[in-house]
Amino acid sequence: MTLATWYALVGALLAALGLHGAVVRRHLLRKVLALNLAASGVFLLLVAPGARGPTTDPVPQAMVITGIVVAVSASALAIWLARRLHAETGRAALPDAEDDRA
């Protein structure tokens, strides 16, 4: 197994675990953590092909840096919202979807 394939496999596994957790877990903090795990997996997948040749491809690395910035800002916003929700409802989980609330 080459290094690139190993990275790609680990990345895919992390992404799958994270996506699963984000859907299944109810606690908002766990959801946010799971999404961050999934993001790390995707980032690893992005840089994996760079390990193929003798020189490293800089483009995926630049993308991953941008992706990390995005993930940090999104997580910050999510945690702020979770805190507001907790302050207002006393719960750290999403209220059940009620489509036709009056």
Binding site: L19, L28, V32, L35, A39, V42, A78, L81, L94
Partner: peptide, 15 residues
């Protein structure tokens, strides 16, 4: 609550 749900879905979709 609606915003939180929106953000989580949006993050999942983006990933």
């Amino acid at each position: 609550g609606a915003a939180t749900r929106y953000l989580l879905v949006s993050m999942l979709g983006s990933l």
